[in-house]
């Protein structure tokens, strides 16, 4: 009997508990729903939007920086004396030509030797190898010259003041005190012009004091004219290709 009563009462107590739980939790439904809405909105909307704001802010800072550089670049380019810059570029390209400077250097050596009473006995020109990618390319000039010591010194000094840029690699002199025979090895340089401008947002590098000094040194270099080769005298034969 007792067992029966117990069994009969069990479903009743369960139904009362469920009812009570529902009543108790009903008051939390709205706050919980709002919490879920806020959480969902935070994940789907607020989070990405906030991140996007931070990204945009970073982009804005970068753009402001870039624009400052561009404004500075524009102002500098506007204030540049174009005619002075053209002259400087001409001087610089004359010192380090755009094409192989071997021929121009030969003309210089020949003219300087002539004006210094120096005899050139042998002359060799060879393309050197540059180890660095952006370095100037070398042309090596080797020649034997003879003359008095003072003339040789004058000749060497005049070469160091000639365009294109000539550097002495080695000097080997042998003499009797009067006439000196010298093996002279020199280097001359050339380089192609830069093919592209630096990126737009790169700050403009203006000509500084060091560049001015170098340009001053390059300006003191005197270029020799290549001159002309005298045409061969005409053959006495009417048709030089005809058989004898």
């Amino acid at each position: 009997m007792i067992g029966q009563t117990f069994n009969q009462n069990r479903p009743l107590s369960q139904s009362l508990d469920t009812q009570g739980l529902k009543t108790k939790t009903r008051s939390f439904w709205v706050p919980l729903s709002i919490f879920f809405v806020i959480t969902a909105l935070s994940i789907t909307v607020l989070g990405p939007q906030t991140q996007s704001i931070f990204d945009t802010r970073e982009h804005i800072v970068q753009l402001q920086q870039d624009n400052r550089v561009l404004v500075d670049k524009k102002n500098k380019l506007t204030s540049i004396d174009k005619s002075l810059l053209t002259r400087q570029a001409r001087i610089a390209v004359s010192a380090i030509p755009v094409e192989s400077s071997g021929l121009a250097a030969l003309a210089t050596v020949r003219n300087k030797a002539f004006s210094s009473n120096i005899t050139i006995n042998q002359l060799r020109v060879s393309e050197g190898e540059s180890s660095e990618k952006d370095a100037a390319k070398e042309v090596r000039l080797q020649f034997e010259i003879s003359g008095s010591l003072s003339d040789l010194l004058k000749f060497i000094d005049s070469l160091s003041k000639a365009a294109p840029l000539l550097r002495i690699a080695s000097v080997k002199m042998v003499g009797d005190g009067v006439t000196i025979s010298t093996d002279l090895e020199m280097k001359t340089f050339w380089a192609e012009l830069p093919v592209s401008l630096p990126p737009l947002n790169t700050p403009l590098n203006q000509v500084n004091k060091k560049d001015q000094d170098l340009l001053g040194q390059m300006n003191n270099l005197k270029a020799e004219s290549l001159g002309f080769v005298a045409p061969a005298s005409a053959s006495a034969r009417e048709n030089p290709f005809a058989p004898y």
Binding site: L85, T86, A89, A92, A191, P194, L215
Partner: peptide
């Protein structure tokens, strides 16, 4: 103007090494 300036800077950089 920028090209000219670039040329001058390129040449002076090379000359500085030579």
């Amino acid at each position: 103007s920028e090209t000219l300036l670039n040329t001058v800077k390129n040449r002076t950089a090379l000359a500085g090494k030579i």
